[in-house]
Design a protein around this nucleic acid. Structure first.
Lengths: 197, 197
DNA sequence: TTTATAAATGAACGTTCATTCACTTATCTT
DNA sequence: AAGATAAGTGAATGAACGTTCATTTATAAA
């Protein structure tokens, strides 16, 4: 028996994300990937069933890693403000340090390959964030809201900030850096919106 | 001289959007499009320089239409709450009536073809929304905020609601309908966040 | 050292791709 | 009615695509 070369797998994953980010999903091909990763195209089919499987698996793995990083130090019994801030800053940190992974996942998110990743990610979030939200409501730190309203207010602004940051030029045609100040200011508004009155 | 057949152009546009929504950007091809629109592939090159041009132009046109619909009845001297509500409901109405167009633009938005559409759309928004925001701040109806913070709070939640609506199944594994109630509830939170204290 | 086994390969497969070209067709101008 | 012009076409192009296959290579077990 010959052992699998772990470096090859890592190279495949990294180059898959890099190529899809730089050339787009439609510009991505198995032969290009093989060349970029320094392996034969046939090798790809040892690790993955086909092209779709390769992209979907890579997306799932990157998403899970992103989620687990964003929950570092998180505990569902935390106060709402504390728990939400922790998630915001963990995510922002991950985004700045793993821009390729994030942009890759964003591209897949809006393709027709995201159904499976979505199911997996959604379930994980439900399991970890459900109790947190329930606790916060019970403690009257958070208004009871339909999930989609809650999510739209609590996280959509963060993702929008990141999208601004990812795009090279913002509204004012100037480079927009995702600073701590901007994050804190936006988060404060979100908390204000969600606080029971 | 022979006149251009306007129906052909409309068919090309409609089928471009329908095909990209249903089969994804990577599953889209000029030959498929020609067959779907009932014309010869060569005809596509009378109207568009190449495949990229076809997608980009279609995206720009759809985006401008969407924007102009969302600004129907809008006036930059409106009160902030009134103007924002008008835009939210115009957009929601357009989304439900033109789901294909919206999903198409969302797909292009996250591809590598969006640079040009983005510039055009961003400029239009700046021109129409800039004065509105300045007026609102002058009247103390809106906190003065960096643009990216303002946008992240004012519109990102709406787009998130629409994404939930577009996806077949939401967090709770149930079909999520974008109801007036949900919209109003979310908008109220947004206004609460943005109101000067 | 030998043997078994799965990793790994380069070249090749048939298919589909974007695009072109020689040609026909429809309609406006005269 | 004739001529001019651009719309519109079906078939064909070479290139690139995803995938397979016969073969070689490395290594764990004997």
């Amino acid at each position: 028996m010959r052992a699998r070369d772990e470096n090859k797998i890592l190279a495949i994953r990294e180059k898959t994300m890099a190529l899809i980010v730089s050339e787009g999903l439609d510009g991505f091909s198995m032969n290009k990937l093989a060349k970029a990763a320094g392996i034969s195209p046939a090798t790809l089919y040892i690790y993955y069933k086909d092209k779709e499987d390769l992209i979907v698996q890579t997306c799932i793995q990157a998403s899970l890693e992103m989620m687990s990083e964003s929950l570092k130090g998180f505990d569902p019994t935390m106060s709402f403000a504390e728990g939400l801030a922790l998630q915001w800053f963990n995510r922002a940190k991950y985004f700045t340090q793993h821009q390729n992974e994030v942009e890759f996942v964003e591209k897949i998110r809006y393709s027709n390959l995201y159904e499976k990743p979505r199911q997996i990610i959604t379930q994980h979030f439900r399991e970890t964030l459900g109790p947190f939200v329930q606790n916060a409501i019970a403690r009257k730190e958070l208004m009871p809201l339909p999930f989609e309203v809650y999510w739209s207010i609590a996280f959509a602004p963060l993702y929008q900030l990141i999208k601004f940051h990812t795009q090279t030029r913002s509204y004012h045609n100037e480079k927009f850096e995702l600073s701590d100040d901007i994050m804190k200011q936006t988060l404060a508004l979100v908390l204000k919106a969600l606080k029971p009155s």
